[in-house]
Amino acid sequence: MSTIGYESWAVDLAEVGPIYPFQGWEIAMVIVGVLFWLGWHRIQFKRESEHLERAKRRARDHADIMSNIERY
Results as ranks from 00 to 15, higher is better:
S2N: 07
S2Y: 00
S2M: 00
T3A: 02
T3V: 03
I4D: 10
I4R: 12
I4M: 11
G5S: 03
E7K: 10
E7F: 05
E7M: 05
E7Y: 04
S8A: 05
W9G: 06
W9P: 03
A10L: 05
A10T: 03
A10D: 11
V11N: 02
D12V: 11
L13A: 04
L13P: 06
L13T: 10
A14I: 12
E15M: 07
V16T: 08
V16E: 02
G17Q: 04
G17M: 06
P18R: 14
P18M: 12
I19S: 06
I19R: 07
I19K: 02
I19C: 07
Y20A: 11
Y20H: 10
P21I: 10
F22E: 08
F22P: 00
Q23H: 08
Q23L: 13
G24W: 01
G24C: 01
G24L: 01
W25H: 09
W25E: 03
W25T: 09
E26N: 06
I27R: 12
I27C: 08
I27W: 03
I27V: 12
I27P: 01
A28R: 07
A28G: 08
A28S: 04
M29H: 04
M29Y: 04
M29Q: 12
V30R: 06
V30T: 07
V30A: 04
I31T: 13
V32R: 13
V32D: 02
V32M: 08
V32P: 04
V32W: 08
G33K: 00
G33P: 02
V34I: 15
W37H: 09
W37I: 11
W37G: 09
G39C: 06
W40N: 03
H41M: 15
H41W: 15
H41V: 06
R42H: 12
I43H: 08
I43E: 06
Q44E: 13
F45V: 01
F45A: 15
R47P: 00
R47A: 12
E48K: 14
E50D: 14
H51T: 11
H51Q: 07
H51Y: 15
L52S: 02
E53V: 04
E53H: 03
R54M: 05
A55S: 05
A55V: 14
K56H: 06
K56S: 13
K56N: 07
R58T: 02
R58P: 00
A59S: 13
R60T: 08
R60I: 15
D61K: 15
D61I: 13
D61T: 14
D61R: 14
H62Y: 14
H62E: 15
D64V: 08
M66D: 07
M66I: 05
M66S: 08
S67H: 02
S67Q: 08
I69C: 00
E70I: 12
E70S: 14
E70T: 05
R71W: 03
Y72F: 11
Y72Q: 13
Y72T: 11
